[in-house]
């Protein structure tokens, strides 16, 4: 009951950012896919090639229009992560509502898990659902000549999880009581490194491994900081 009350509160505070992220990604992703369907993909790509040019088979089979929305998904996801991190862990500092939240008949881990659960839901519902919808749309052979592979779909979820890494980095920075120009930014710096290292992995397995390690490190730091922090 207490956890649910806290979860409801956190979700309500996340709602504007969830809606904003969903609307932005749906609008941009939808626009990109519609534009590709209208232009007749992949004619736009091959129109610039001179006769006799050799094109690798990967481009012919894997370069689906859905890939073009990937970078937007990553930007939206990281943006949402930063916004939610600020909302959950920085705003209570600015509005001085931490003591009101902390002093109640719930222990600190419950309060923290409610925030983290709200963040996960806030990623899955707006960005995840839109991503699934765009994937399903781009899988229609009557509209698109090149259909997306499973890898493209999984890469999308990887990008969504990278948003969660940005969230955890922002949360850790918010919980640090150091000055902003000193160790306070370490959380964000570490999250940036994890995001870069994940993006630059070609093998999905390695990418997920880097991501999991990053999440575990950030999460353990957040738990420690939250349980011992002064409010």
């Amino acid at each position: 009951m207490r956890f649910l009350a806290l979860l409801r509160k956190e979700l309500r505070e996340s709602l504007p950012w969830m809606l904003l992220a969903a609307i932005i990604f749906l609008a941009i992703g939808g626009f990109v896919l519609r534009a590709q369907a209208y232009l007749g993909q992949p004619s736009w790509y091959y129109s610039g090639l001179s006769p006799g040019t050799v094109v690798d088979t990967y481009r012919l089979t894997h370069f689906s229009p859905l890939r073009m929305t990937g970078s937007w998904l990553l930007v939206t996801s990281i943006g949402l992560g930063l916004a939610l991190g600020v909302r959950h862990f920085w705003m209570p500092l600015f509005t001085r509502t931490w003591p009101f939240l902390i002093h109640r008949s719930a222990n600190r881990p419950t309060i923290l898990w409610a925030k983290l659960a709200a963040a996960i839901i806030s990623f899955i519902i707006p960005v995840g659902v839109v991503w699934v919808a765009l994937y399903r749309y781009s899988c229609r052979p009557e509209i698109f000549e090149t259909l997306p592979t499973k890898r493209v779909f999984i890469e999308g979820w990887l990008f969504i999880l990278l948003g969660l890494v940005a969230y955890l980095g922002t949360a850790l920075a918010g919980l640090s009581s150091a000055r902003w120009y000193t160790t306070k930014i370490l959380g964000l710096a570490f999250a940036t490194i994890v995001i870069c290292m994940t993006i630059f992995q070609w093998r999905l397995g390695w990418a997920f491994a880097v991501l999991v390690v990053g999440v575990v490190v950030l999460l353990s730091q957040i738990i420690d900081a939250f349980l011992n922090r002064e409010f």
């Binding site: 009350a5 509160k9 001085r96």
Partner: peptide, 28 residues
């Protein structure tokens, strides 16, 4: 233990009824 914080910092987006519902969850 009841605690009234300095400056009465409450969740600004909640209505009085919502705040009561939230608070009540911790004192069932």
């Amino acid at each position: 233990i009841g605690y009234v914080t300095e400056g009465h910092r409450l969740f600004r987006w909640m209505s009085i009824a919502e705040l009561e519902k939230f608070q009540r969850s911790f004192f069932p």
